[in-house]
Nucleic acid binder design. Structure first.
Length: 1119
RNA sequence: GGGCUUGUAGCUCAGGUGGUUAGAGCGCUACACUGAUAAUGUAGAGGUCCGUGGUUCGAGUCCACGCAGGCCCA
């Protein structure tokens, strides 16, 4: 017959390794998928990690969250395929390679060929794959590592191309421009990474201008004017005067207060009314001039008078039109009006921001949102361009400044007396034209090119976009159907992002990534988007035929430089070259639902069965990354969500709440943690300690505590079960003892267990693993171990193998097995061993692994809320009695006669009576006496029911409460007897209370030692009679003899003989005589006898008594 | 600067729809218990519930404004 495994000093890390070996040998993961074949799919998408760095502890967190729900759904009967994946493109890989080779981006194609460079990236990106695979296995994250999708593979890229072509065909792909940092000296755009190099931002002194923008005198604007003659101007400040010829709008803050100030221009002395932010008036108008009258002003006066004439808020000003400041070039649609911008502040300037869409990112964005055009000219090739060329010079259309460099890019001697920066020349012109309100030097930081040391320009550069704004409403609408955990990420961070959506800039000027599959003629008139390798081959054949390409290339790799060498032919016969950009790597990962199956080029069915995902989970930092690109592509390609449920998990910080970093040395090594504490404790700790979407402060002490408190307790409980079940050969072979024949505590723990199953099921169904883990933990520690097992210990080790004992075994077994299943998604290793240890003996489950089992069903009939309530009463009463004993220093081993419990309702009385035996044995008392009203000795306490009374009396609540507090015993009795009681609120107002309006409890029994908790009160009779004293001594003797047995290393089942030396104290002798049978039964003694003199006896101290005793093992007993 | 988020005991965290004495575990102190024993029970100490205003008879909870930490974006 099989025995339950017993363990000494269980090693959880070793357990993890053993279970892992078992899974591997028996392909349990594979079976957990194949055995669900034909069942409903639960679709999970793996957000691909990048293997060019080593995995950290936060990956354990993220992957545990993913794993838990996949395992849970498997238990619930779903088939859960989980295809792994690797993210392999992108800037971090390139930067790492450049660092290792000691080169910069500029060297690519010069010091190293693009081919060699990309080869290097390909090798680097998978460098730590082995470590990742190792961690995945060791932490128990079940994902298919054998057939992962890899974003650099040709098939994957081809899928991306096919998707891009679909977007292209729908008109969602277009070429436009974005404002990027640009170095005219180097003739190249700069990445934000390059701009963040140390030393790039430095202090410069620039000429700044506050310009006057004259409001048009048209009907809609007349609210700004006092009369037809008034000259009303917006004033706006700029540190880049060279952008003023390109101005097409002004931005105000929606809620910012503005004023119109009547004053005079300081350069021309002309009267002018300027509009600026109210908070900034003092910066432009001297406080000393505030009392001067406008009429007294004479041209040239140092103090210029001013008068605040009107006030507005920003939204009032939106839409107001003004005259173009420097009319060199005209826009192609209406411009020169005020718009609202969220970036406007009153920290500096005038609270009104000058907008030139071609030279500022904010400007560009706010202009696009308000349909404000940019000022552009056409160059000699017919291409449009801004008013400054790529060398940094004004174009010829800006006549007064044509050909001038906007900054000193030619190394002119700035110290020369004749030198005037272009900005200064602009300032002079504006002053002369009565358009400058203030000109001054201003020192500030400004980014410079790290190669030329010259200031960068923010300049429009070509980019390819996906027109996500075209489907903005649909994106928002479908987002509302997604179940976000936490909800706020979906409505807040993600929802706001969608509300403020701009088109997705796809272009990246790099080398290692998915190339943009668009070929274009040099003049840009004709272009072709390629959607497959086959199509590319066809087009190549045409090109060869047309003679634009020498010979068709063999397409082995869709990366650069190979695709760059392909030249296609346009319909009109012109050569087309590939647009040199790569696409944003986020497109790669957002395309994974399709590209992982090489869809749409093949596997249509597989794709359809696996789209959209039921569930995904990643870090909250992916909100605008993966979460967005998945959503955007799904909406544009399939008009569907990409995922129905999503957990956005928080960060894992160090124990002090700081971000972990290798540089600071506070990063926690996941392998070390798992090696030290085993995978389960690490997973359990992370999940139970904080909800996944909160940041987790990772502290190894917490892992230790989890291991000790939860796993230690569970293991203790199992060990206890195994020890006795093995002795009794309990294998769960017998039929279940019906619930009604089980004890109150059996039925209670089974009721609690079923409640737990229901709770855990609903928490997991709601994607809340933390609540599930905590519920399981509380059940195991508090209910199962500290109450059920503690109260029922004796049933396991005492007496015959009868029905009651069997019921106890069955009950405990059921609890353990159910816990194994419930906890298996979170702690897959330990629960596997627990399950197999139990099942290998009982054979109750036909499956070989807990992960192949079914989620426990709730036995609704077994849930008994009344029973749960009365067991709670038993626990409270016991706790109160313990506390009373403690106060009187009466040890639990000393029996006491009775406790008194005041009961104010029959229901409470019945509830307590049902658990009376439990209470009595737990607190070692003989009887419970219930006292009710009729006894006449209860002192009652009355308390207002604030919730109820508050609703009725509202503001008079304080008076009512005071009146209630003042009620005496007679008043309370009257209220109870008559069902109503009149109270006086004030001199002429009364109110009638009903018993529902108050809470009445009994808190005192005069003359008794009482304790209470909530509405429950317990009194203890502390009289110790001679008989009780003897029994106490007997119990002490039992205790000492048990200790002796243990000290003598006797086995639990060994029988003994006891000899006691007759004591000088008669009560000890009496106890031995009167409780002889009891002592024998408790200590497994066959005999207990007195002797006058014991030679080799052990001296026992029992309170004030000393007893010599000897135990001897019975050698003839056979088990 | 904007959006989102967190702030409760020394530490980690609970505290539906407002209800008067704010809880748990760990840690600390003391005592007890002992066939689960590297466990367990009881008790104690420990809180301006981040701050300031407001709404309300009543605010940890609702509102406003701040402060501090975190993430993302400028």
């Amino acid at each position: 017959m099989g025995k339950y495994n017993e363990y000494k000093n269980l090693n959880y890390a070793k357990l993890g390794e053993d279970v892992l070996a078992f899974w591997k040998e028996n392909n349990i993961f594979g079976k957990s998928v194949t055995t669900r074949e034909g069942n409903e799919n639960f679709v999970f998408y793996e957000g691909p990690p990048s293997a060019n760095g080593t995995p950290g502890i936060h990956h354990v967190m993220a992957r545990a969250v993913k794993d838990i729900f996949c395992r849970y759904k498997t238990l619930k009967g779903f088939q859960v395929n989980r295809k792994g994946g690797w993210d392999t493109h992108g800037l971090p890989v390139e930067l790492q390679v450049e660092k290792e080779l000691g080169i910069t981006k500029e060297d690519i194609g010069k010091k190293i060929t693009v081919e060699e460079y990309n080869q290097r990236c390909r090798e680097t990106v998978m460098r730590f794959k082995n470590q990742w695979d190792d961690l995945t296995e060791k932490m128990g994250y079940w994902v298919d590592l054998n057939n992962p999708y890899i974003t650099f593979e040709n098939e994957y890229i081809e899928s991306c191309w096919a998707l891009l072509k679909r977007l292209y065909d729908k008109g969602y792909l277009y070429k436009g421009y974005t404002i990027q940092p640009y170095s005219p000296g180097a003739g190249t755009g700069l990445s934000s990474h390059e701009l963040n190099q140390p030393g790039c931002y430095r202090m410069v002194k620039d000429t700044t201008i506050v310009a006057q923008f004259e409001v048009k005198k048209i009907t809609r604007n007349m609210f700004l004017f006092d009369n037809e003659e008034e000259n009303v101007c917006f004033i706006a400040w700029t540190t880049t005067p060279w952008t003023l010829p390109s101005n097409t709008a002004l931005a105000v803050g929606k809620g910012i207060k503005y004023v119109k100030v009547k004053s005079f221009n300081p350069y021309t002395f002309e009267p002018v009314s300027v509009i600026l932010a109210k908070d900034l008036v003092s910066r432009y108008f001297s406080d000393k001039a505030k009392d001067l009258a406008l009429e007294d002003y004479k041209p040239g006066d140092k103090l210029i008078p001013f008068k605040v004439a009107a006030e507005f808020v920003g939204s009032d000003l939106a839409g107001v039109e003004y005259h173009q400041l420097m009319p060199y070039v005209q826009p192609d649609k209406p411009a020169f009006r005020v718009v609202v911008g969220d970036f406007v502040t009153t920290e500096d300037g005038t609270g009104i921001v000058h907008i030139s869409p071609t030279f500022g990112a904010d400007d560009f964005r706010v202009a696009a949102q308000n349909d404000i055009p940019a000022l552009l000219v056409t160059d000699e090739f017919g291409k449009t361009m801004p008013l400054v060329d790529k060398q940094g010079r004004f174009v010829k259309e800006v006549t007064d400044f044509a050909g001038m460099y906007v900054k000193n890019y030619t190394g002119e001697d700035e110290t020369g007396a004749d030198y005037k920066p272009t900005d200064v020349k602009i300032a002079i012109k504006l002053k002369e034209e009565n358009k400058a309100f203030r000109v001054e030097k201003y020192e500030h930081t400004y980014p410079h090119c790290w190669r030329t040391d010259k200031p960068v320009l923010y300049y429009p550069l070509d980019s390819w976009f996906i027109k996500t704004t075209a489907v903005k409403d649909r994106l928002i609408e479908l987002n509302k159907t997604i179940n976000w955990k936490p909800e706020s990420t979906g409505t807040g961070r993600f929802g706001n992002w969608l509300e403020n959506l701009v088109d997705w800039n796809l272009s990246r000027s790099r080398y290692w990534g998915t190339p943009l599959p668009i070929w274009r003629t040099e003049d840009g008139d004709e272009e072709l988007c390629i959607g497959s390798i086959a199509q590319l081959n066809q087009e190549m054949a045409k090109a060869v035929e047309a003679g634009v390409m020498d010979a068709a290339a063999d397409i082995k790799d869709l990366h650069r430089p190979y695709v760059d060498n392909i030249i296609l032919v346009s319909k009109s016969g012109k050569a087309m070259y590939r647009e040199p950009d790569l696409i944003d790597v986020w497109f790669d990962s957002g395309a994974m639902p399709y590209a992982q199956w090489h869809y749409p080029l093949e596997n249509k069915n597989t794709f359809e069965q696996n789209f959209p995902a039921d569930y995904i989970a990643e870090g909250v930092d992916q909100t605008r990354g993966w979460f967005f690109t998945l959503h955007a592509l799904a909406v544009m390609l399939e008009d569907s969500v990409a995922y129905k449920n999503v957990i956005a998990n928080g960060l894992v910080l160090d124990k002090n709440g700081n971000k972990m970093s290798k540089r600071l040395g506070n990063a926690v090594d996941p392998f070390e943690m798992i090696g030290k504490y085993g995978p389960d404790a690490v997973r359990w700790y992370m999940i139970a300690n904080a909800p996944p979407w909160d940041n987790l402060k990772f502290n190894a002490d917490g892992v230790v505590e989890t291991q000790r408190r939860f796993f230690g307790t569970l293991q203790n409980t199992y060990s206890f079960f195994a020890l006795y079940a093995n002795l009794d050969n309990f294998t769960y072979a017998e039929a279940d003892v019906p619930l009604e024949r089980r004890t109150e505590s059996d039925r209670w723990i089974i009721s609690k267990l079923n409640t737990l199953v229901q709770e855990v099921d609903s928490y997991l169904a709601d994607y809340d693993p933390t609540k599930a883990a905590r519920a399981i933990q509380d059940f195991v520690v508090d209910d199962l171990s500290n109450w059920y097992v503690r109260l029922n210990r004796k049933r396991f080790w005492k007496g015959e193998y009868n029905e009651d004992k069997m019921a106890a075994y069955q009950t405990l077994y059921t609890c353990l097995e159910t816990i194994a299943k419930l906890a298996s998604p979170i702690a897959p290793f330990y629960t596997e061993q627990l399950f197999r240890d139990l099942n290998s003996v009982s054979g109750r489950n036909s499956v070989e692994s807990v992960h192949l089992a079914d989620f426990p069903e709730v036995a609704k009939g077994a849930v008994d809320k009344d029973l749960e309530e009365r067991m709670q009463l038993a626990q409270t009463v016991s706790s109160l009695v313990h506390s009373l004993r403690k106060k009187q220093m009466i040890k639990v081993r000393q029996p006491l006669q009775r406790i008194l419990i005041p009961v104010l309702s029959e229901h409470t009385k019945q509830q307590i009576q049902a658990v009376e035996d439990l209470i009595l044995s737990e607190v070692n008392v003989k009887e419970v006496e219930y006292i009710d009203d009729t006894s006449g000795i209860l002192v009652k306490k009355i308390k207002p029911n604030f919730k109820k009374l508050g609703q009725v009396f509202g503001p008079k609540m304080k008076l009512v409460a005071a009146a209630v507090q003042q009620m005496n015993q007679e008043d309370i009795a009257k209220l109870e007897r008559e069902g109503g009681f009149e109270i006086l609120l004030n001199d002429d107002e009364t109110a009638v209370l009903t018993p529902d309006d108050v809470e009445i409890s009994s808190e005192d029994i005069p003359g008794w030692l009482v304790a209470n908790e909530g509405k429950l009160t317990v009194a203890l009779d502390i009289t110790i009679t001679e008989e009780l004293k003897q029994e106490g001594i007997a119990r002490d003797l039992v205790n000492r003899i048990q200790n002796l047995r243990k000290d003598s290393n006797l086995e639990v089942q060994d029988k003994i003989h006891i000899r006691v030396q007759r004591s000088a104290a008669p009560e000890v002798n009496a106890a031995v005589e009167n409780y002889n049978a009891y002592i024998c039964a408790e200590t497994q003694a066959l005999s207990l006898e007195f002797v006058d003199e014991l030679v080799d006896g052990t001296l026992l101290d029992i309170d004030e008594y000393q007893v010599y005793i000897q135990i001897q093992i019975e050698s003839n007993v056979t088990i």
